[in-house]
Simulated assay, not measured.
Amino acid sequence: METKPEHLGRAAALPWLGSRIRQRAGRTMVAIDGVDGAGKTTFADELAAELTDAGLSVIRISFDDFLNPPTIRHRQGRNSPEGFVADTYDYERFIDDVLDPLGPEGCGRYRAKSYDPATESPLSPPWQVAPDQAVVIVDGMFLHRNRLRNARGRKIWDLSVWLEVPFEVSVHRLAQRDGTPDDPNDQRIARYVEGQKLYIAMIHPADRADLVIDNF
């Protein structure tokens, strides 16, 4: 039975995670989940830097480097929120190249990327070998989906985080970063906003996480 998540502000979150990660032996799998614009990459990088400074080996993975090609991402239609949740990521490749080899019984031989979003091109980078003692930090959307749970229905992450950010804030951040519409109700971004709302309503990631962070 999964326990009730801890709920902390950003300032207390890094020490909380660091203390629990340092207690663990072997490879530790950490997920940083949240909506687009929640600050996942920034927070994951900060956690990685703090752990590295503490002398731990850290492997950083971004789920955005495991996208499906456009023919799959848009097979339910370019405006489909359901398609955005179901078809954005290549879960099979992510499981084969990251989760299985870096898991507790894995061989440690992994690939950090399978796709280049900038060029919309598949990748086959060289295999890397992880040390037996390492922290694997993955940032990305939809990391609490049932497809990333084990055969017993339990999440595969040793620790997982949900970054709590209102859509008004996350969409504004994306507008500043990417020049996208600055209104969550704008129909030009409805596929993405409504898809993420669908994920939250179906999965309740804040309930599945070990730590919920107010990141706004």
Rank of each mutant, 00 (worst) to 15 (best):
D97N: 06
Q128G: 00
S121Q: 15
C107H: 14
T119F: 09
L102I: 00
W127C: 00
P104Y: 14
V98R: 02
G103P: 04
D116R: 04
P122I: 13
T88P: 09
Q128V: 01
D97L: 06
V129K: 08
E92T: 14
V129Y: 03
D97I: 01
G108A: 10
A118R: 10
R93A: 11
Y110R: 02
S121G: 06
D116K: 05
S114Y: 02
G103H: 13
Q128C: 08
E105K: 10
S121F: 08
Q128F: 04
L123S: 07
E92Q: 11
S114A: 07
S114H: 06
C107N: 14
T119Y: 09
D87R: 09
P131Q: 13
A118N: 12
F94P: 04
Y91W: 14
L102G: 00
A86D: 15
D97Q: 12
T88Y: 02
L123A: 07
D132F: 03
V129W: 07
D100R: 13
P125T: 08
I95S: 08
E105F: 11
I95M: 11
D90R: 04
A86H: 08
S124C: 11
E92C: 07
Y91F: 15
D116H: 04
D96Q: 14
T88V: 05
S124A: 12
S114V: 04
A118E: 15
P126K: 03
E92W: 13
D100L: 13
S121D: 12
T88K: 08
W127L: 08
Y91R: 12
G106Q: 05
Y91N: 13
Q133L: 09
A86Q: 14
R93K: 12
G108W: 02
P126S: 11
D87Q: 11
F94N: 08
P125D: 14
C107T: 15
A112M: 00
I95G: 09
Y110N: 01
R109K: 09
F94Q: 03
D132V: 06
R93P: 04
V98L: 03
Q128W: 04
Y110D: 08
P104T: 15
P117Y: 13
